[in-house]
Design a binder for these strands. Sequence first.
DNA 1: GGCGAAGGGAT
DNA 2: ATCCCTTCGCC
Length: 188
Amino acid sequence: MESYLEGGGVKIFFENELVVADFHLPNKSCILYVSECDVVAGNSYKRRLVRYRNSSSSFHELVLVENTRLSEQYFSAVQKFVVFDLGLTLLPVSGQTEASQLITQMVHGDGRENPFRRRSSSRLLDPLVLALVQQVPGVGRVKALALLQHFSSIQQLCNAAPAKLEPVVGQSAAQQIHSFFHKHTAGS
DNA sequence: GGCGAAGGGAT
DNA sequence: ATCCCTTCGCC
């Protein structure tokens, strides 16, 4: 391990390259830590983020990103990737000290409401997402339901290639869906 | 929520 | 080509 910090009776270890997540918290959350080194070094952190995102754990996935003087010029790009492309929750921190304080608060706040927890993802959000997906031309109740079973997020759905959509909704609807999400980015 | 027309999917 | 299912506009 690289280092550890202690705050409020909670020991926090920073390690290199754990399997998927860097932290698992008691409140059903896990954390991936992106350091300023990762950000400055290039795009290789994206691989780890995608793997993290695709590791379908039952935990709510958070991403802590160091936003420092060294890495701030890259921050908006990281933010766009994490939030928009992957649909994850991003929390900027100034360094490991602030990260450990944040994690400590989240651990201590367990039992109380976790402000970073997504509001009941499956039960409350699904009807809204379902209604949203049905706004796509050629997609009604049945196809929307099928799509949501095969794609775990809107991000994955709207970035999906027609070939990925086709086995789920058929060729015609697959093309309509792809066109709908790409109609103003000079698509096919 | 239910009906009917039109279109697409599967066989 | 045919049947069945889905979408969608309408009441």
